[in-house]
Design a protein around this nucleic acid. Structure first.
Lengths: 167, 167
DNA sequence: GCAATATACTAGGACATCCAAGGGTTTGGA
DNA sequence: TCCAAACCCTTGGATGTCCTAGTATATTGC
């Protein structure tokens, strides 16, 4: 890690907003900026834990999703909507996972447009181990106390619903 | 926007975690995943507002930072630490801003290693207009009620301090 | 004073994300 | 029936982020 800054840069930004007469939006600006930064910190931690497994977070997310699918396989577009990423991102991710032998593409039995993604045994094993590592090294040491975790889940859940993620 | 999903995918992931015996970390997992998704939603909104100005969020952040600097100029490494991004990202961003005529590089008067970044008049004007747009279209309509904004600022502020962002 | 160490920036490469566009497959209405 | 519209995936291009290395300049220690 780099040396901590002497002052919170987001609190400073908020002061700058207030000094410029934007007090009415200074607090939401600070909250949103804090979310951006927190995401960056968390992503770096997660990527650090996954690095030994040879997968990135994007690839892990797809492996985890597949490992929970009842049939063990999912159409590309289903993965895209569940992971909330662009279809081209899924194509990119599947290409790399397939090169690594962790998933395979197979044609949909009835819809010629659709491609199914399926975990290989290696992919299944890796997903299991990577999940155990993330649970132990990231989620069990999130840096949030239980009460804050509940607050975040509630606040961000409402936000995501209002943003149109789900109904 | 895509059609909302019938169910919250993060709540489903949490259920999957609990079903697999990882109940102790299911809640933090859900909170962290929600932060990742929320960041993605907010970033998309911000980029949408900035698009007409021809800048991305990364470039806007640097312009805004420079616009608040007393001297009107900042060393590259200062910008890197304040924005909490890798020095090479700043190099990349400055390259593009400079090509667009929004900032200029100049040598540091006493330290030959250091490069100063400075806003051009065009950069200053654009920063002002883009900030007004973000204030009106994103921060003023954040989707968080005031109470939640305060909660987020508090919770994420503690998290960032513990993560070593500042002291 | 000079060599060793530290600091500042840049070049090249790997990844992820999105958008725009294209080609194949299905579906639905005339 | 049949063609247009809708849907699914992939390719190609632009951006941003990080990492590893390399070059240049400062600082430190002997």
């Amino acid at each position: 890690m780099a040396t901590p800054l002497p002052r919170d840069p987001i609190a400073d930004a908020r002061l700058n907003w207030e000094r410029h007469g934007w007090s009415d939006v200074a607090a939401p600006m600070a909250a949103i900026t804090a979310i951006m930064r927190t995401q960056q910190i968390l992503l770096a931690r997660i990527e650090g834990v996954l690095k030994p497994f040879g997968v990135t977070f994007a690839r892990y997310e797809l492996l985890a999703l597949l490992s929970f699918a009842r049939s063990g396989a999912l159409p590309m577009n289903k993965a895209s909507s569940l992971l909330q990423v662009h279809p081209t991102s899924v194509t990119n991710t599947v290409d790399r996972l397939q090169s690594a032998g962790l998933v395979v593409r197979s044609p949909h039995p009835t819809d010629g447009r659709t491609t199914l993604i399926e975990l290989t045994p290696e992919g299944h094993t890796l997903a299991k181990r990577a999940t155990a590592a993330l649970n132990a090294e990231v989620f069990a040491q999130s840096g949030f106390v239980d009460q804050d975790v509940d607050q975040l889940i509630g606040i961000l859940g409402s936000f995501r619903r209002n943003a149109g993620d789900f109904s």
